[in-house]
Amino acid sequence: MNHKSIFLNQIAACRNEDGWFASFDRAVKGLTSEQASWKQTDMMNSIWEIINHLRFWNLRYLHYFTGVPTNKMEGNNDSTFRNQDRLDWPATVASLHEMMSAWYKAIEESDDVKLASVINEQSDEPWADAIADLNIHNAYHIGQIVYIRKLQGSWDPEQGVH
């Protein structure tokens, strides 16, 4: 199995193919905007904020990967949790799903040379490492979404991940 097929499997697992953990689709299935906005404490991020954060980093790196000009980041990582596009809840979910689909397609159309190349002239990190980290980052936050749903009582145990 090569890098490309591993990354495609990881993206599919994060996006909509349940396996060792709940996919994004399963994690947000049936979730209302009120539930997505819920916080147990002010020290936690809401599910909606987590998805905003995932949208920010997935889109930024997708733009780098596909050659779309990207502005210098304003703020810090904490600012990535805000709903900068002012999307409603269904649009926020659809947006991340579309980004994961776009990542799948971009990797599917890439070659080993692209995956071995560095992200940009400011970085010596190869794309293969960055994509692996992005997929792990997505899986980590999807796990947080399931955990938050369990805390608030909105997780259906029939969905798995006991």
Results as ranks from 00 to 15, higher is better:
residue 1 M to G: 07
residue 1 M to S: 10
residue 3 H to T: 15
residue 4 K to G: 03
residue 4 K to E: 11
residue 4 K to D: 12
residue 5 S to A: 10
residue 8 L to T: 10
residue 8 L to S: 04
residue 8 L to R: 08
residue 8 L to K: 05
residue 9 N to W: 10
residue 10 Q to G: 11
residue 10 Q to A: 11
residue 11 I to C: 03
residue 11 I to S: 04
residue 12 A to Y: 04
residue 15 R to L: 14
residue 15 R to A: 11
residue 16 N to D: 13
residue 19 G to F: 02
residue 20 W to M: 13
residue 21 F to V: 02
residue 26 R to G: 07
residue 27 A to E: 02
residue 28 V to T: 05
residue 28 V to E: 01
residue 30 G to H: 04
residue 30 G to M: 09
residue 33 S to G: 14
residue 35 Q to K: 07
residue 36 A to N: 00
residue 39 K to H: 11
residue 41 T to K: 09
residue 41 T to A: 08
residue 42 D to S: 13
residue 42 D to Y: 03
residue 43 M to R: 15
residue 44 M to N: 12
residue 44 M to L: 11
residue 45 N to Y: 12
residue 51 I to Q: 02
residue 52 N to G: 11
residue 55 R to I: 14
residue 56 F to S: 02
residue 57 W to Y: 10
residue 57 W to L: 03
residue 57 W to Q: 00
residue 58 N to P: 09
residue 60 R to M: 11
residue 60 R to W: 12
residue 62 L to M: 07
residue 64 Y to E: 04
residue 64 Y to L: 03
residue 66 T to N: 04
residue 66 T to R: 04
residue 67 G to T: 10
residue 68 V to G: 03
residue 68 V to R: 01
residue 68 V to L: 04
residue 69 P to F: 05
residue 69 P to L: 08
residue 72 K to C: 09
residue 72 K to E: 14
residue 73 M to T: 13
residue 74 E to Y: 07
residue 75 G to S: 04
residue 75 G to T: 09
residue 75 G to Q: 03
residue 77 N to Y: 08
residue 77 N to V: 09
residue 80 T to G: 03
residue 80 T to Q: 05
residue 80 T to N: 08
residue 80 T to V: 07
residue 82 R to D: 14
residue 84 Q to R: 13
residue 84 Q to W: 14
residue 86 R to T: 12
residue 86 R to A: 14
residue 89 W to E: 06
residue 90 P to K: 02
residue 90 P to A: 03
residue 90 P to C: 02
residue 91 A to Q: 14
residue 93 V to Y: 00
residue 94 A to W: 10
residue 95 S to L: 15
residue 95 S to M: 15
residue 95 S to D: 15
residue 96 L to N: 06
residue 96 L to T: 08
residue 98 E to R: 13
residue 100 M to V: 07
residue 101 S to M: 13
residue 103 W to K: 02
residue 103 W to N: 02
residue 105 K to D: 13
residue 106 A to I: 00
residue 106 A to N: 01
residue 107 I to Y: 04
residue 107 I to P: 08
residue 107 I to Q: 09
residue 111 D to A: 01
residue 112 D to N: 06
residue 116 A to R: 10
residue 117 S to I: 03
residue 118 V to L: 06
residue 118 V to P: 00
residue 119 I to A: 04
residue 120 N to T: 02
residue 121 E to L: 12
residue 123 S to D: 11
residue 124 D to A: 09
residue 128 A to L: 15
residue 130 A to S: 13
residue 131 I to K: 05
residue 132 A to C: 15
residue 134 L to R: 02
residue 135 N to V: 05
residue 136 I to M: 12
residue 137 H to G: 07
residue 137 H to T: 08
residue 138 N to F: 03
residue 139 A to Y: 04
residue 142 I to H: 07
residue 144 Q to Y: 10
residue 145 I to D: 01
residue 148 I to N: 05
residue 148 I to E: 01
residue 150 K to T: 07
residue 152 Q to L: 10
residue 153 G to W: 01
residue 155 W to R: 00
residue 155 W to E: 01
residue 158 E to C: 10
residue 159 Q to S: 13
residue 159 Q to G: 10
residue 160 G to T: 03
residue 161 V to Q: 15
